[in-house]
Design a protein around this nucleic acid. Sequence first.
DNA 1: CTGGATCCCTCACGATACTG
DNA 2: CAGTATCGTGAGGGATCCAG
Lengths: 213, 213
Amino acid sequence: MAKRNYGQFCGLAHAADLVGERWALLIIRDLLVSAKRFTDLRRGLPRIPTNVLSARLKQLEADGVIERRVLPRPEGSVVYSLTDYGHDLEPIVHALGRWGARSMGEPKPDDIVTPDSLVIAMRSTFQPDVAAALTASWELRAGPAVIHVKIDEGKLTTDVGELPDADLTIETGPAIKALMAGELTAEQAIEAGHVRLEGNPALLTTFAEVFRI
Amino acid sequence: MAKRNYGQFCGLAHAADLVGERWALLIIRDLLVSAKRFTDLRRGLPRIPTNVLSARLKQLEADGVIERRVLPRPEGSVVYSLTDYGHDLEPIVHALGRWGARSMGEPKPDDIVTPDSLVIAMRSTFQPDVAAALTASWELRAGPAVIHVKIDEGKLTTDVGELPDADLTIETGPAIKALMAGELTAEQAIEAGHVRLEGNPALLTTFAEVFRI
DNA sequence: CTGGATCCCTCACGATACTG
DNA sequence: CAGTATCGTGAGGGATCCAG
């Protein structure tokens, strides 16, 4: 049984054949942050059925977008990662994320925030020109999702997990989006209790300037 | 009944909620070329069921990506066009199209080529720096799809339809992709009979340089 | 415990017919 | 022309189970 496809000899149609199916782009989003095992992907995409995840991974691998590697002993575990071709989707994922964020209102009651999505949000909103020559680090906590962001002389690195010696730790909720969109100033966010800070509070303004929707 | 969504407070997930469903991106592709009526969209997407087209148009309108306008008399007909927000997808559609084109092999027997997809292919592969200060025009015929391309002092305009006074008319098939990808030189394409020209044949090489996968 | 496979159910999609 | 109506099919969703 051949895969369903759009039947058009067109780059966009072919791209949609490859990564246009449900969940595919979110799998790629998480793999852009780091290579992952099957179970890690499940954790980052709690609502994906395992059979769908399994099917997507198979198809994406067959299409040359991701790779499946079995680690050497003693782990013996399976790791999925992007191929070079798949990794070339990064600017597209970033641009789509920025585009979508512009019309994203308040989170619905059972919306979740995953660490990987936060990392991508940081990477895609980073303003290199604003951050030129800047050096600073933040830890960002949104509910259970904890990530960190470092800028070293204008160069960005960001990943999931804590950063105990961060210059500023920001504990926040959805308001972080309003802050990054400029709908809220740092002062307003602090006053309204939308953020809890630990460290150098002046760096909250810097943060809002460097990461911009 | 609420729309199915990914349940993640994430720009990419939200974008996928808006334009990630089947056919949505192809509808947007065609609307990027020009505003269209329901029947025009059907013509450009022959395999889309009308109820799906109808559902997509409704949802995209509700989400602020497209607009539905009823033309004043005597037409009284309905026209769909992109909103400003929807139009902002253009660079993303172009980038995805280029990405997909890289892994697009030979067309399958019943693959079709539509005029709109060709126009988008031209726009997304246009190399402004190569074309700087250039002035030339082409008519491109791929089966029933006929489009034209004009470059006026480096500025590109392209649309569906003929261009009787084009500097060069190119009648071709899938080989146009190989030509644009550099897998085939203009001479080889001519020699192998992949293209039929009418006009200034030297402009075929120019074409292959200016439109590059 | 990881990495899936399997089952069942539902609903979105696909094909076609039909209407204002 | 611009859709709606109907109906069959298959992909997606959810739970459970199994092998290494």
